[in-house]
């Protein structure tokens, strides 16, 4: 079985993002970029499945300009076997990304596609579900546990009311949550080895995917700040204050 992993290049999660004064977006100038943390978890899971002998090949896919090759190399250094860049300078939205993934899926015929549950930049949480819909296959989102049983997978999903368990026949799309695993650290020799692994480039046009969208972002602003609060000295004052505000 082959496993396909989606990797998105995003602002590193430790960076405090700053909105540009002209409202055109957030400041990306000189900002550290990384693999979306949820995608790292997706890749880690695929590597563990392969290393347990349940898959033969792990392929990482990223959509974007040439800088995404850095993140694909990170994926290869983690242990992926090969990489595919879907080259475009367009800011692809989730539906376009799902359409591009579908084209790659049709070429590669994976048994499993594992994606992060969302990217930490635009927080859309759409691409995996959209790919599953377009592909006409099962989706198991927000996975915190994944067990393969031959031709199906048992997935534990983190939902608001607790843990939901579903069985999905393969091929399927799984999106992963934080608690699925802890991704490995990349070692220097692996980074050297990754340079020799294959990285294929295919353009969005070659795949026949239109980058257009029905949704466009027109402005970006910092969030409103909460007003400064007060300090009380003890529990009695706290209770009195809550009563004054009609909260008790």
């Amino acid at each position: 079985m082959k496993i396909l992993i989606g990797i998105k290049r995003v602002v590193d999660y430790n960076v405090r993002v700053r909105v540009l004064p002209d409202g055109s977006g957030v400041d990306l100038d000189g900002v550290k970029m990384s693999v979306n943390p949820f995608d790292e978890i997706a890749l880690e899971e695929a590597l563990r499945i392969r290393d347990a002998g349940k898959a033969e090949e792990v392929v990482v896919v990223s959509i974007g300009g040439d800088p995404v090759q850095q993140q694909l190399r990170t994926g290869l250094a983690m242990g992926a076997d090969r990489a595919i860049q879907v080259k475009t300078d367009a800011e692809l939205q989730p539906l376009g990304a799902a359409q591009a993934f579908l084209k790659i899926v049709e070429r590669e015929e994976p048994g499993l596609v594992i994606l992060g549950k969302q990217a930490i930049d635009d927080d859309n949480s759409q691409t995996g579900q959209m790919l599953a819909a377009l592909w006409g296959r099962p989706q198991a989102t927000f996975a915190s546990k994944l067990v393969l049983n031959g031709t199906s997978a048992r997935v534990t999903r983190e939902v608001d009311s607790g843990l939901e368990i579903v069985d999905v026949d393969l091929p399927a799309v799984i999106t992963v949550d934080l608690r699925l695993n802890e991704p490995r650290f990349v070692k220097l020799p692996d980074i050297m080895k990754a340079k020799r692994k294959p990285l294929d480039v295919v353009t969005l046009e070659e795949l026949g995917v239109d980058a257009g969208s029905n949704v466009s972002v027109t402005h970006c602003a910092p969030p409103p700040q909460r007003a400064k609060g007060i300090m009380v000295d003890d529990a009695a004052q706290l209770v009195q204050e809550l009563k004054n505000r009609g909260l008790l």
Partner: peptide, 22 residues
């Protein structure tokens, strides 16, 4: 919610549109 975030993008893709999240 987790239900809406799971369901609505599947609907959006079948309708053929991007979703507005949140």
């Amino acid at each position: 919610t987790t239900l809406g975030r799971d369901l609505m993008p599947r609907i959006a893709a079948l309708v053929g549109v991007n979703q507005v999240s949140d």
